[in-house]
Amino acid sequence: MQTTSNLLMIKPVRFDFNAETAVNNSFQQASADEQVSAKATAEFDRFVSVLRNAGVQVTVVEDTPEPHTPDSVFPNNWISFHTDGTIFLYPMFAVNRRLERKPHVLSAIAEKFQVANTIDLSTYEQQHVFLEGTGSMVLDRENKIAYACLSPRTDLTVLNDWCNKAGFRPVAFTSVDSKGDPIYHTNVMMCIADRFAVICLDSIPDSKERTAVTETLQDTKKEIIEISFDQMNHFAGNMLQVKNTTGQHYLVMSSQAYHSLTPDQVQRIEKYNPILHSDITTIETNGGGSARCMMAEVFLPEK
């Protein structure tokens, strides 16, 4: 099953620019706006409404003021949920992001879903190697493939360990932005849906790696919809396919990402599913993440 109708989203309480993550996230820009937190909360609420109005089930858990976790709105980096009842916890690059693993979030999930096993990989933080969940990995769940661009936040050793434990095959490569700097998370440059993939192939400089990724996508019968560096910079790679309770699929993205797409790209995507988008500009600018980062897919069996 590639898509789910259940999402976990964390409502921010003290959202802010995080200097600890900005060292290797070129998408972040500090704002002088004193209303950043309030604006981010309003954007979050509107985004949740867009999803719920489409029939997608969203479990909203409000963050706590203390400890201060400015990036808590991006839960997909520290936790993932799987069909066999397994939860994975991930090693995080930024020290203050490790505080996002809050017990009340896990309790809220356990109230609604069956949790059979928790695998905690956060001990890798002691070795200063990291794997930031479905930010570091873009998962083809049906074909058991984990695409991952290696970076300071995505270590090959941890990736291989996760793949061994989860039963996935890694497809690792290097991806860079237009300036040649490493892309911090794979889900910035690609998205895997049930029958198509959105990807910035230009960001993979090594021709052999680019060919390997392309051939893997083709072998798994995915139509490849390419995006440019400029579109990637507008978060057009940061998308997630979801479904509602009746089985209708949607591709979810930010309004910024949507407006960067060409009419042809929109048409090719909507051949498979409608698009849902919401304006989350404050979150994107200060947090350096977009719509996909805000949604942790819950594949656990429901109680």
Rank of each mutant, 00 (worst) to 15 (best):
E66S: 13
P67W: 10
P67I: 11
H68R: 15
P70C: 01
D71R: 07
D71A: 11
S72W: 09
V73N: 00
F74K: 06
F74Q: 11
F74I: 10
F74W: 10
P75F: 02
N76D: 11
N77H: 07
W78R: 05
W78S: 01
W78G: 08
I79K: 01
I79T: 13
I79L: 01
D84I: 03
G85H: 04
T86N: 00
I87V: 15
F88G: 05
L89W: 04
L89E: 07
L89I: 15
L89P: 01
Y90H: 12
Y90I: 01
P91T: 00
M92P: 11
M92E: 12
M92W: 11
N96Q: 04
R97N: 13
L99A: 13
E100V: 00
R101Q: 10
K102L: 13
P103G: 03
H104F: 07
H104A: 07
H104R: 09
V105Q: 03
V105C: 00
A108K: 06
A110M: 03
F113L: 00
Q114R: 15
A116K: 15
A116F: 11
T118M: 13
I119N: 08
L121P: 02
L121E: 05
S122I: 06
T123E: 11
Y124D: 06
E125D: 13
Q126F: 07
L131Y: 14
E132L: 06
G133V: 01
G133D: 10
G133L: 08
T134Y: 05
G135I: 03
S136Q: 04
S136F: 02
V138L: 09
L139M: 05
D140G: 04
R141N: 02
R141K: 10
R141Q: 02
E142K: 15
E142S: 14
N143V: 03
K144W: 00
I145T: 08
A148R: 10
C149S: 14
C149G: 06
C149T: 10
L150Q: 02
L150K: 02
S151L: 06
S151W: 09
P152Y: 13
P152S: 07
R153C: 00
T154F: 05
D155M: 02
L156A: 15
L159R: 05
N160M: 07
G167A: 04
P170R: 14
V171G: 08
F173A: 03
T174C: 12
S175E: 06
S175V: 08
V176F: 06
D177Q: 01
D177H: 04
S178K: 13
S178G: 13
K179Y: 12
G180E: 05
G180H: 10
D181C: 09
P182T: 12
Y184V: 01
H185T: 08
H185D: 09
H185K: 04
H185L: 05
H185V: 02
T186Q: 02
N187P: 08
M189I: 11
I192E: 07
I192C: 04
I192Y: 01
D194P: 14
R195Y: 14
F196P: 14
A197D: 06
I199D: 12
I199W: 10
I199Y: 13
I199K: 11
C200K: 06
L201D: 01
D202Q: 15
